[in-house]
């Protein structure tokens, strides 16, 4: 189906407004005092374990923010880093953060510095632990491999956008016996993290991390709103599967007309220029 969606059609507008409305409604409900329940996510529970292990062994923690730039995915990874950094600061552990993007680098340094300061241990923060390595994928991977081996990290956290280098980082951590927790919305790399890491956070669980770790009402409410959004999508799918089935029954199995009508509906844009 070739849909032209350079601009929002009526359907897209209604759907996105509905999803955003659901999310906002739940955010404000949670802020108003109705703290929602979130089920346990094993990978996220293991983060505290990983930092604790590093403290016991007297070895540092490694946290990789992936290959993304200043985007939503990396922002979420920074939120998890903030939590890890505070834990590490509390237990007087080191967190080494190799960074791939020059724009993210000062943000990362600030997140780490603030975490140590918030725990009353600003003197433990070592600026050399936040290192810009390279913006090239495999130069970054070789640098991280070297750091993991030389520092003999006890725990490795891999959160963010990853590509082919994901398995290199994960296996390097395994070589030194590190406990590894990985989380990425890059679905094609998840199998490698599952094979090589102790815990893997899959798909949407990645965006649930900040809610789960901080238990902040805004994030919890947003997560519930996401659930409602999924219900809305599921309901749409179920209803439209029914419509498609009915069409199939009444048109002898030929679906071409259905696809044409669907395309027209999904692309319908009131007020668009003639000839589109």
């Amino acid at each position: 189906m070739d849909l032209r969606l350079e601009h929002a059609s009526l359907f897209v507008l209604v759907l996105e407004l509905l999803l955003c409305g659901l999310i906002l409604a739940r955010i404000f409900a949670a802020r108003g005092g109705r703290i929602p329940f979130i089920r346990r996510i094993p990978g996220l529970s293991a983060i505290d374990e990983g930092v604790g292990r590093a403290t016991e062994m007297g070895r540092p923690v490694l946290f990789s923010l992936g290959l993304g730039g200043l985007d939503i995915v990396t922002l979420q990874a920074l939120a998890v880093l903030g939590h890890v950094a505070r834990l590490a600061a509390r237990y007087a552990s080191r967190v080494i953060v190799p960074v791939v993007d020059a724009v993210i680098f000062p943000v990362t340094e600030e997140v780490l510095r603030d975490a140590y300061a918030a725990e009353g241990k600003p003197e433990l923060f070592q600026p050399e632990d936040v290192r810009f390595l390279s913006d090239q994928q495999f130069a970054y991977a070789s640098g991280v491999m070297g750091i993991i081996n030389r520092e003999s990290v006890a725990s490795s956290f891999l959160f963010g956008s990853f590509f082919a280098e994901s398995l290199i980082l994960a296996e390097a951590g395994h070589q030194v016996g590190a406990v590894q927790v990985a989380g990425t919305p890059s679905t094609t790399q998840i199998p490698f993290f599952i094979a090589a890491c102790d815990y893997t956070i899959i798909g949407e669980e990645y965006y649930a991390a900040s809610a789960y770790l901080t238990q902040e009402p805004t994030f919890l409410g947003s997560l519930i709103g996401q659930d409602w959004g999924k219900i809305a999508l599921l309901a749409t799918i179920v209803i439209m599967v029914g419509v498609a089935s009915l069409w199939s029954l009444t048109h002898g199995g030929a679906m071409t007309g259905f696809e044409e009508k669907l395309t027209g509906f999904l692309q319908y844009m009131p007020g668009a220029a003639a000839g589109r």
Partner: peptide
């Protein structure tokens, strides 16, 4: 990006489950 990436996939999920396919 959400619309461009996921709406076509959503539409492609509206599949008939009834004969005479």
């Amino acid at each position: 990006g959400f619309a461009r990436l996921y709406i076509p996939q959503l539409a492609a999920s509206f599949l008939p489950l009834v004969q005479p396919e």
